[in-house]
Nucleic acid binder design. Structure first.
Lengths: 344, 344
DNA sequence: ACATTAAATGCAAACGTTTGCATAAGTTTT
DNA sequence: AAAACTTATGCAAACGTTTGCATTTAATGT
């Protein structure tokens, strides 16, 4: 004989009040006198009343929970974004339900279908690599905010960094320390952010009257460490070797650094290396790697903020909004050519 | 005028059937004829019926969702565990709601309170560093499974690795390659897992007739890279320097490796280094670090599996269960003293 | 003293699904 | 052909909270 949970009605009976009064008292409704609120809350504590939030959600048609779709949780970037989302959501009394698309469109479709069943008040999503149309998101009745990998040619709320400008900044930093032959390890250009980084790289060269040499650009499928090693080795075989390498992420930057180091090139003297994303490894590896802080945590916070604002928006005038976060270049030893450092 | 969502009743009216029949048809109940099931499903698709899972949860008193409490999402270990949980839960049609305790007991208490309101069918938790009693978990009416940092002297379901045995294995590996003066960089012994690693280290020494030297053991608060550097530097100042170092995690292993390398010691010739957890960095850094695979992903899967089994358990005979996962030593260059490698 | 207003509480329906039990129709057994 | 099942469907209540509206009581104004 397991004991039933205490409900509003139990409290009402106990106190000879209407359930509605109890409900309002606990919700701190202004129409209820302070006196009754006090009694109710006291009795609630005494009987160990725990509100049934499912019943509440059901009645109010509001779950105060957000659905998050990420490619994979165990990628550091995404775990930081999720952390930012959770942090903001928690303070706003929302909770966060997570799904991994595993970069599969099929799975993304199924997740969206699950979320359709109305368990969340809003959705934050980073598109899977396979996603090339957004019909499934159109069907959703709740607001959606995309981050990082966002839909193109489709009106939606988004939180992104300015990859193009950031890539220019990074490339120009290499130029500013005297690099003339700057190489680039690129991600898959089918993904907009990697394309933007590539374009930024090219734009910086052009802007500074440096030629774009196609053998100084190497493409990867997924910017893995192993792919980075291959790319760097190809650079190493070139006649005119690069004196600076801008890598589209930090893993490939580590690869480049190690390959050139092993071939007895000095970093940054012979070749400077710059990465992207500020992964933990970038400040541990020797020499520490200059990189672009991609603001993952802040991106999560901004996305949650934007989404919750949209959920709670009274005036439904704004249909979509795009937030572009400012990145910053974190300059470390791998590009400190001209600077004598005496730090221990 | 926003359109209302299609409900079971709408379908029922449309088809001149009772809502109960619709409900059963969609749930594929055996009492419903195949013919009606067909009509119902067809009509459901036609009208775009999406079941309201909140209503269902409310009625069934079952949410098919799990609550996860982790210290921080952006710690690689935990993100791997979460990934394992999500993976298993997804296949079992559960979804996963995440909370970060930020290693704060207060926050853990509040999260438990939130989860109390019955939005989850079960909970997976890694205790916060501050947690020293488990009263708040006792109040929960749903099954709880702990992982990694688990309660002591308290009956509960747990998923852990055998830290003690793993530490013995790691230390004996150092001994097997000829190390005589083995140091240890330890975590905070207040945390059971770090204490177990320390004890395993000591046990291995004793078992192999090596003395336990207290200046060869350095303690850290949180096993950070920076702390690791400090510990390693202290080892470097010793008269009898270590010829092998067993570190309680990979970050401190990287520190040790770099500090000794910088001081012109060769790894592993002069000093061998072994880490713990198999972080990505361990196989990227030069030389790659021998480490203990802590099975984070599998730990998540096992926890989810155990929890869901407990949720769905018909016979409530088993009140708690502990799963100990087998670790494995991943041997890499940082301990390959006697082996000539010709790998490129 | 009576009308008006304000403050506090109660009533009852509603949210969309599920489920035990009843019922109707059809089938088999005797 | 009646009795006993089987099969398929319907009825109606229930889950616990919230909310618009009605009602009661108290307070204020004239």
């Amino acid at each position: 004989m397991k004991k039933r949970r205490i409900t509003l009605k139990d409290l009402a009976n106990e106190l000879n009040l209407a359930p509605s009064t109890i409900s309002r008292a606990i919700a701190n409704h202004p129409a209820i006198s302070e006196a009754t609120k006090k009694i109710v809350n006291q009795k609630a504590k005494e009987l160990g009343f725990i509100p049934n939030s499912i019943a509440s959600s059901f009645r109010k048609k509001k779950t105060t929970s957000l659905g998050i779709i990420v490619p994979r949780i165990d990628i550091h970037f995404h775990s930081l974004v999720i952390s930012g989302i959770e942090e903001f959501a928690y303070k706003a009394s929302y909770n966060v339900t997570i799904f991994q698309s595993k970069d599969s469109l099929d799975r993304e479709l199924e997740i969206v279908r699950i979320l359709q069943t109305k368990m969340v008040d809003g959705i934050i999503a980073c598109l899977s690599l396979e996603t090339d149309n957004y019909e499934h998101f159109k069907k959703l009745e709740v607001p959606v905010v995309f981050y990082d990998r966002v839909p193109e040619n489709y009106e939606a709320s988004k939180v992104v960094i300015n990859d193009f400008e950031s890539a220019i900044k990074a490339t120009e930093h290499l130029i500013s320390i005297g690099c003339k032959r700057i190489a680039h390890i690129a991600g898959n250009p089918a993904t907009s952010i990697f394309k933007a980084r590539l374009e930024g790289y090219k734009a910086a060269l052009t802007k500074n009257n440096l030629p774009i040499k196609h053998n100084l650009i190497e493409y990867t499928k997924e910017l893995s460490y192993e792919e980075g090693v291959k790319c760097a080795k190809r650079f190493l075989k070139l006649q005119g070797k690069p004196d600076g390498i801008f890598c589209a992420n930090d893993y490939t930057a580590v690869s480049a650094l190690q390959v050139f180091k092993k071939a007895n090139y000095e970093i940054p003297k012979d070749v400077a290396v710059i990465g992207f994303s500020n992964y933990p490894i970038s400040k541990i590896i020797e020499p520490k790697i200059t990189t672009v802080n991609d603001r993952a945590f802040e991106m999560g916070q901004a996305a949650a903020n934007l989404l919750i604002r949209q959920i709670e928006e009274k005036n439904e005038i704004i249909s979509s909004e795009t937030i572009v976060l400012e990145t910053q270049l974190i300059i470390r030893k791998s590009t400190k050519k001209n600077i004598h450092t005496n730090t221990p």
